[in-house]
């Protein structure tokens, strides 16, 4: 058994340690956010946070992650209490097919955890590992900027951060 903390909740999984995290999240824990895109760490559809840093879950063996905190898009918020990025992606309508969306949001969450007010250039650079085939890039950049600004405003006004990082 491998112990993980997924979206703030301790879980034990019985997958082979060599199993990439992606399949543990999707198949064992029945989470939908992380997507299979390439299995090669080339497209970012599978992006999740491990200890706050964005990783390609399709190439990280779960056996390497014992005891670590993992956040998927499900851990950022709900329809009732959306995370800042989730809210911003809806506001900007920053999706077409939406298959890359959860990975984009997690890559952006990783950015905002280390840089609360990134420039557009920094946003683009951070999102470079993630592919979008529908051509939604500019809306995604706008959504990340919007989320960053919302978080800044929330901090400035003393409210609890809108973006729960899990």
């Amino acid at each position: 058994m491998i112990r993980l903390i997924v979206n703030g909740r301790p879980v034990e999984v019985d997958d082979e340690p060599s199993t990439p995290l992606l399949y543990v999240l999707r198949d064992t824990l029945e989470l939908n956010g992380a997507k299979f895109g390439c299995g090669l760490g080339q497209c970012g559809a599978c992006t999740v946070l491990v200890e706050g840093a964005a990783v390609f879950s399709c190439v990280v063996p779960v056996g390497d992650l014992a005891g670590q905190r993992i956040t998927t898009v499900e851990g950022l918020g709900t329809r009732e209490r959306p995370g800042a990025l989730q809210h911003a992606f809806i506001e900007e309508q920053a999706a077409q097919c939406g298959y890359c969306t959860a990975g984009m949001i997690m890559r952006a969450q990783g950015l905002l955890e280390r840089n609360a007010s990134p420039t557009d250039e920094e946003i683009r650079a951070a999102l470079e590992p993630n592919l979008c085939r529908c051509g939604t890039h500019l809306r995604i950049v706008r959504a990340v900027r919007r989320a960053a600004e919302a978080r800044q405003r929330a901090v400035a006004s003393g409210l609890s951060s809108l973006g729960r990082a899990g």
Partner: peptide, 13 residues
Amino acid sequence: VPAKVFGERAFVQ
């Protein structure tokens, strides 16, 4: 769009 940003069941996958 909401189902896709909240990680709900949105795709045949």
